[in-house]
């Protein structure tokens, strides 16, 4: 690891101030992706701004919306009675990110800001139509995610919370990579009124994406059978040693059905 200067921010405003003046800074949330990357000298920020003390943690229900602070850990989301009652699929998703130790430190804000194409949260944000709150603005999930490892965030912009509208029903199923346990394919389905959203993570060569053909079919009838015969073109999918694009395309169909069946 290369040396860096460590800053601990007491407020979001304080963090922004450090971001603006520090040389090549990076925000430190849970660090569960960033630290291994730095250890392998694949990332070399000259300064880290730790958000742990910036008051960004917490879960609350505001009407029909669940608002989760950016520094809320995966374990906190998974075990939250509020999330479990309102969006059980989201609690389940959080409860299967990484492993128990990673869930104790990894945060929702860190995950969405990193936008790893194999991460779980982006699928939930997209399918549930979540809104990402930053210190500057509010962004719909679809505006926020901007392809592999990139987001709409400015350099001095910090994710402060994520607001999830409570769906009628939602389900998430992940097909994990046998080694890393990241998603090879993860499908989040959410039904709100007559509208259905299907978001796929792990598979797209451009990161998380919505599956319009599936949304249309499920909008007519929210049943796994509705997905029969809906193929996913392999052209825009990832291929690696664990799963070719063709296999991923196939898995999307299978996993989507299972997500619909699991929806609650």
């Amino acid at each position: 690891m290369y040396p860096f200067k460590y800053h601990k921010a007491a407020t979001v405003r304080g963090a922004v101030a450090i971001l603006k003046k520090a040389e090549e800074p990076k925000l430190l949330a849970g660090g569960q992706t960033l630290i291994p990357t730095m250890k392998q000298r694949l990332a070399s920020p000259k300064a880290l701004v730790d958000l742990a003390g910036a008051g960004l943690s917490g879960i609350e229900q505001k009407g029909r919306t669940i608002v989760i602070g950016a520094m809320t850990t995966h374990a906190e989301v998974a075990n939250s009675a509020v999330v479990q009652a309102a969006i059980p699929a989201l609690a389940k998703l959080a409860g299967h990110i990484g492993d128990p130790q990673v869930r104790h430190r990894g945060t929702i804000g860190g995950s969405v800001a990193n936008n790893d194409p194999a991460a779980d949260y982006p699928a939930a944000l997209m399918a549930l139509g979540a809104t990402v709150h930053t210190n500057k603005r509010k962004l719909a999930a679809e505006e926020f995610f901007a392809g592999l490892f990139s987001t709409a965030l400015d350099e001095d912009e910090i994710v402060t919370k994520v607001a999830f509208p409570v769906p009628g029903k939602a389900g998430y199923v992940k097909f994990p990579n046998p080694a890393s346990r990241y998603a090879i394919v993860g499908v989040f389905v959410a039904k709100k009124g007559r509208s259905v959203r299907v978001a796929v993570t792990g598979a797209g060569s451009d990161g998380v994406f919505r599956h319009e053909a599936m949304e249309e079919a499920l909008g007519k009838r929210f049943n796994p059978k509705s997905l029969d015969g809906i193929a996913t073109p392999a052209g825009n999918l990832n291929g690696d040693i664990h799963a070719s694009a063709e296999y991923r395309a196939h898995l999307i169909g299978v996993i989507a059905k299972r997500a619909v069946a699991a929806a609650a």
Binding site: N177, P178, A179, S180, I241, H242
Partner: peptide
């Protein structure tokens, strides 16, 4: 070696 860590080599 494509499988040079526990991220890619499945134990």
């Amino acid at each position: 070696l494509v499988t040079a860590s526990f991220m890619d080599y499945a134990m």
